[in-house]
Each structure stands twice: as C-alpha cells, then as structure tokens.
Design a protein around this nucleic acid. Structure first.
Lengths: 348, 348
DNA sequence: CTGAAAGCGCTAACAT
DNA sequence: ATGTTAGCGCTTTCAG
C-alpha cells in the first residue's frame, strides 16, 4: 500500500503539504502543488478512507435507507436511488445502502460507528419508527416523504394531495361528474403510507369541492385485481366517465380491464394517472398524468443533505408542486361520453 | 462521542482488553468479558468504523457495482441486490452501492482508498471493461455473470444456456415442432450481454438437436413491440405452436398480443418463460417457466465473497442449474393444437 | 489472562 | 508558503 508519506518523499515535501494539496485547506504554491499532484499520479496514490475518517471524522459517505415494502413500485424507487447516488457522487459522496431488514437498529449502528456523515431516508411513513431516532442522531438526515409532524426534521416530498386534487380539477373542468379512484394495494393504506393517503385525500376533498361523485378502490397490480376493482367502480356508478389511477403496477392493466367491460379509453372513460411521466407515456393509450418527479426528489434530497452537511439552514418541509401533462387518455370529447353515459336528469 | 477508552475506564480494564472482547482474538475470562459487555451496553458504545479500518485495514464493507443498463429489468436486479445486502448483513458486512456512471474509475477509487474489503459486480458482460481491473485489484471480487474467460476470477451465474435448452426440450417432448423465441431488446445482444446471448444459444442449439424449426426475435418490453415481434414470429412460421420468452418486461404482454392475433394461450400456443418464478406466476395465464433464481444468485455471490475474504479457495465458476416448473401456459393438449395448426404432412 | 505502548495513515493545530 | 508534531480511535505487538 502506498501512503501519503511515500508521496511526500517522492515529491520532496512534508506529508502535511500533500494533505493540504488534497484538501485545499491552505494555499499551496503552484509549483509544489503540481509537483505533488504529479507524484500522486505517478505513484497511483489514493488516500486511505478509513485513516482520513479517523483523523478528520468525516466519512464522505451518506447512508440511504430503502425499505423495500410491499406495494411500493420498485423501479420507481430505484430511479430515485439512482438519482440520489449520481447527485451524491457529484458532491464527492459515496452511498451506503441500507435495506428494510436492518431497520432502526441498522440506522443506529451506522450512525454510532460513524460510517456515514448523513442519512437519506426513503419511503417514510406517517408514523415511521425511524423518525424518533433520526431526531436525536448526531448526523443530519433528510427524509423523502412526510411523517405525521416534520418539526425538527428535513423532509422533501411530492405534493400528492395537490396532485390528487389536480386530477379532479382537470376532469371536472372537462365536464366529468362521476370519477373513480384506483389506488394502491390495501396494505399500503393500512400501514399509514403518507403518499398514498394524501393522494386519496386530495382526490376526495377536491371531488367534494367540485360536487362530483367519487368512488375509491384499492388494487394490487395484477390483472385479476385491476379487473375486479374497475368492475366494482363501474358497478357502483355506471355513469362513471373518468378514472384517477394512483398505482404504478396497475397502469398497464387499466385500459384493457376497462375495455373488457365495454368501456374504451378515452372515448368512454377518461383516465388520469399519478405516476412518473415516463410510465404514463408508455401506456397504451398514453395516459394523461400528474407526474411524480422521482429523479428530482432523489436529487434534491441529496442537495438538501449536502446543504445541512455544510452547515446551511434548510427548510423543514419542501413540497414539489404537481404539474399535469395531457396525453391520449383524456383526448376524448367529454360531451359525447357524457351524453351517452350520464343520466340526463343529473346533467347540469 | 464515546470511545473505547471510556468503556475501558468504566469497566476498569485496559482499552486493549475491550478491543479483544470485541474482536474475540484472544481469550478473555468470563468475568471481565461480561463486565466489559455491560459497560458497552450502558454507555451505548459503537466502535468507530474509520479508526478500526485505519488500524486493522479491514472495512467490513463490500462494494456492489450495479450498472443500471437499458433493457435489464430493474426489479429483478434489485431483488438480487436486496438478497446480497441481507446476506452481507448476516456476515457483519455493510454494502456500498455503486452505479453505472461511476464505471471503472469508481471501482478503482473505492479499491484504492480501501473503502471496501471486496467487490460484488453485477450484470457482467462478456467483454466487460471492469474485468481487467478486477483481476489486478488487491481486494477479492465475485462477478455475477460470465465474462469471455473466467480464469483468475470468481464468477457465479445461472446456467442460461441450459435454461434455453430446457425450454426447447420440454416443448419438443410435448410434440411442438415450431417454436419461437422472444428475446431481450436488440441493444442487449449488441453489447454482448452474456446471459441473453447464452439463453438464445442454448435455445437454438437444442432446437437443432431436436430437429424443431425455430425463429428468434428481439423485443423491447412495450406493447407495440411485443405485438410486432409475436406477429413476425407467427408470420415467419404460421405453424408455430410454442413460444419461449426471455424478457421480463414483455411477459405481461405476450398473452394479449397472441390473443390479438387469434391465438390463445395455452390452447393454440404454449409459452415457456425464462424468468424469476414469481413473475411467471403473476402472468395471466400463469406461465410455465425455467426460474431464474435471482435471490439465490445474490446470496451465494456474497457467500463466495465472504469465503474469499476468509482466505478460502472458491471455484472460479459456479453455475446454478435450471429447473422447469409447469403452469397454465403449457396446459394445453398439444395434440389438439398440433392437429389444427400443423401441416399434417410434417406430423411425425 | 491482562496491561502498556507502539503504531495504522491521515489531518490540523502550532510553528517558522 | 511549508515543516513539525500531536493527535484521531482503534488494533496488535510485546511484556508480564
């Protein structure tokens, strides 16, 4: 192994000078700097991370906690992680991956043994058991998601409540009076998953405000379940002309399930999805969507964390605003669908 | 921060004794051991990972390189990573996550700065640029996948060639004479991805051996592409009565695409997939499959790595044998389909 | 079976 | 602008 002393000797300087060249924590003359840099290159020197951590108590590692829970769409989660890793790398940080089974104990271990400078916690639930610990850790953390209260924390999330509302607004504006909501699997709501809960709440509240009739159904992603859920929605209100889908796994099955029940998208039923835009584009027909900015969430979460690591004060809650993109699934002429499907006596 | 000296003082022993209690590298009397352990518990002591690494040059971290390439099914990859993380944790190892963009330089950096004791490299291509570096690294590594030559390396992989062959054997045994192969996206073959290549080769070779007519088509996972690919297969050989699918993303679209072209699964076309068993079970109808044991791959790869870290000699190539599980997609009575679809003059 | 002391490779005062 | 030196917290000789 080649050490900082080897470099110092080779360049004819003191070890500390090499250190300062590397960290930039004090001015070095251009001449010695380049001499040192050259020696580093020639010898193929890499500072020993452990020793550096030991001396400077800084690891240049952030731990990312990814609970791989049921009903959470893995590809979506991973795009977030990938974005986080990329952003972390840009700031010279490596990423320690923690999964569900490590739980709270794992967090405490990594924190206690100083293996990471900070924590990025994904998929935070409303009543997340990790939150109390995070509050009292020496290391800063950023949560993606919203626990019951964000006081004393740094949280970033997509505004799912506004997203749910935006879907309703768009559909109601287009004249739809009966709107169904196809949500996440039951288990997701049962364990108090914030993003699912809030999307549904936003949907429901907006429906009330706009005076439209709404029905909600959970669904797992598989074909049978989607067919059953859409069937139930249509049976509850045969006049249903629009659907809001908040379930990535179900996306691909919605149109075929509706078709199997005699409704075409978008002619008979308009569909708006809450999901990453790329997923909505891939569906057939392409879905109008309120895009969940997964990459941006991962990226900005890391940027918040870097800010905290640098001693900056960051907002305790950052909410990313929803933006609706129209695509084929709402391209129908609502007048036509309404004329055929809606009870005339109820038409405004 | 609470150090080993604090513990030593609290327990009334020397710091070295605390260290030996922790590492178990020399016999300690039951009395002092429990006294030390109690102090550790009371004070909430966690050994400082950096200091430990600095002194012992052991990190208890393995780096996992996950190139998130196009056409590689992310959920499948992630289940492998999750299994690897779990297994690593069981051996007291944490996991440093590396993604594609870090590339070869990233590997060299982590290795040089001694941030990991070993490397787990996923999704290795036949001519992978990381392989030369891995050969000359101080740290041991295990590759999941097979490069052109495995000499001097430790590789583990599912036997995709045998898997491709097993599909053909099963279908040929059932009397099918025209079998199509629906593969990964073109790009995957173009860049020499071993597992895709070998599955196809195994399929082709077995088809030759059994004297069945075979046609192969790549496909991206989306609806349009699957429809087009299956259409091309059926047009090339209208007598096609069986399909081998090696594309996780396409799974859900195969049956509907065939149906759209007037063929039912399994009555008209039998389907065998090469994919994780859980995915095959979820399809409608459920697919007979040669299961890719993703979790086992992740787990055993880590076990191999742990073996190497402990100085054991491990095989340079481990191949996991394929196992075929029958499900609904091959439940048709081949005689019937053959009678309808096959040119009588060619029937055995 | 346990202590004392000398490092591990690096950083950060303290010097000049 | 650079060198010298004292740690960082832990492991591991060397002694007893």
């Amino acid at each position: 192994m080649i050490t900082i002393c080897d470099v110092a000797r080779h360049a004819g300087v003191a070890a500390s000078t090499v250190s300062y060249v590397l960290t930039g924590k004090r001015p070095i003359s251009a001449a010695t700097r380049s001499r040192v840099l050259e020696s580093i290159r020639v010898l193929g020197y890499h500072p020993h991370a452990g020793a550096r951590t030991s001396a400077a108590s800084r690891t240049n590692v952030v731990a990312v906690a990814v609970p791989l829970r049921d009903g959470v769409h893995v590809p979506v989660l991973m795009r977030m992680v990938a974005a986080a890793v990329t952003t972390a790398r840009r700031h010279g940080l490596d990423v320690l991956l923690m999964t569900a089974d490590q739980g709270v104990g794992g967090l405490r271990g990594i924190a206690g043994s100083a293996q990471a400078d900070g924590f990025l916690v994904l998929d935070v639930e409303m009543d997340d058991e990790r939150v109390p610990l995070l509050r009292q850790l020496a290391q800063p953390s950023v949560l993606i998601g919203q626990p019951a209260t964000t006081a004393g924390l740094t949280c970033i999330d997509f505004d799912f409540e506004a997203a749910g509302a935006a879907c309703v607004e768009h559909l109601a504006d287009a004249g739809h009076r009966y709107i169904g909501f196809l949500g996440a699997p039951t288990a997701v709501y049962q364990r108090g998953t914030g993003f699912a809960h809030r999307a549904m709440v936003g949907f429901g509240a907006a429906a009330m405000r706009r005076g439209v009739t709404s029905t909600i159904r959970p669904t797992s992603g598989d074909h049978r379940s989607v067919l059953k859920a859409t069937g139930a929605l249509l049976r509850a209100h045969p006049a249903t002309t629009a659907l809001v889908v908040h379930n990535e796994a179900a996306l691909g099955r919605v149109a075929v399930s509706l078709r199997a029940q005699g409704r075409r998208v978008p002619e008979d039923v308009a569909v708006v999805a809450i999901c990453p835009d790329e997923l909505a584009e891939q569906a057939t027909p392409s879905f109008t969507s309120v895009g969940v900015p997964v990459e941006e969430l991962g990226r900005r979460a890391v940027e918040l964390l870097v800010g905290k690591l640098n001693g900056q004060t960051v907002p305790s809650l950052t909410l990313l605003e929803p933006k609706l993109s129209e695509r084929a699934s709402t391209a129908g002429v609502p007048g036509r669908a309404l004329a055929r499907r809606t009870n005339p006596s109820r038409s405004a």
